[in-house]
């Protein structure tokens, strides 16, 4: 079991945003975390990456928790934030080196992989620039390259498609598939449901800080036979139900 979230209650202050959340991501699985704005997707992710501490409940990555083994827990994660987070005073090359140092990567190998990824995202001629001055899409690409050279066991990707050009979206999907084949697991939060529908293995629908439902597209269709056939239809009908 790559990621196991069980009975997590948590939030930013005293008031819980997440109300008893449980789900898991199995080895080599790509799980889509789906929800409206403010549903608790990013809060869930912030708990998994350890920015927030749950009030109660446990989060485990391959059997490790933050409490008993912080370093091993975090070594397994690669995170792509929704809003790119960059060092204003480091160049692109130095961002990659930071990642390599942090994850104990073999530099020669990691650079080979990095060069390949940089070429894919057309960043290979910008190694000595400050990515903090890039456009949103290009910053996002920097975050993607940094994450995908890590060979982490669990990728946590928050809204990856916003701001990316169509070519980059398709390249990113390819990269995710390759990582899956290598055995990594991916948890991805997104609003872009038709893209998610095509290549996620399973979906976790989160609403109002609770898990509304989860399962593969087939299972969801069976659970809500009148909602429609696409993920979009099912999700919309559930969200509308909850509003009433």
């Amino acid at each position: 079991m790559a990621l196991n979230v069980s009975h997590v209650v948590g939030g930013y202050s005293q008031i819980p945003v997440l109300k008893d959340i449980s789900f898991d991501v199995k080895d080599g699985e790509l799980v889509g975390l789906i929800g409206l704005n403010g549903a608790g997707k990013s809060t869930t992710i912030n708990h998994i990456i350890g920015i927030l501490k749950p009030f109660s409940g446990t989060i485990m990555i391959n059997g490790k928790t933050i409490e008993n083994d912080n370093r091993d827990y975090k070594k397994q994660i690669a995170y792509i934030p929704e809003i790119p987070v960059l060092y204003p005073e480091l160049t692109l090359k130095e961002h990659l080196e930071m990642t390599m140092m942090a994850y104990h990567l073999n530099h020669t190998q990691a650079w080979k992989e990095a060069k390949r990824l940089l070429r894919i995202f057309r960043l290979d001629n910008k190694l000595n620039w400050f990515p903090a001055n890039f456009s949103k899409g290009m910053k996002q690409k920097v975050m993607i390259v940094c994450a995908f050279i890590t060979n982490a066991k669990l990728f946590i990707i928050d809204e990856p498609f916003l701001g990316l050009d169509p070519l980059a979206v398709s390249d990113l999907i390819d990269l995710i598939k390759q990582q899956k084949q290598k055995g990594s697991s991916i948890l991805m939060s997104t609003h872009v449901l038709d893209t998610a529908e095509r290549f996620c293995d399973r979906f976790v629908l989160i609403h109002g800080g609770k898990i509304r439902t989860e399962g593969t597209l087939e299972q969801l269709r069976k659970k809500f036979p009148h909602a429609g056939s696409s993920l979009n239809d099912i999700y919309l009908s559930l969200a509308r139900d909850d509003r009433q």
Partner: peptide
């Protein structure tokens, strides 16, 4: 200076 950066908390740093 780098405490605000998420990655300083996510990287498996010694």
């Amino acid at each position: 200076h780098f405490d605000d950066n998420v990655f300083m908390h996510i990287y498996p740093l010694d």
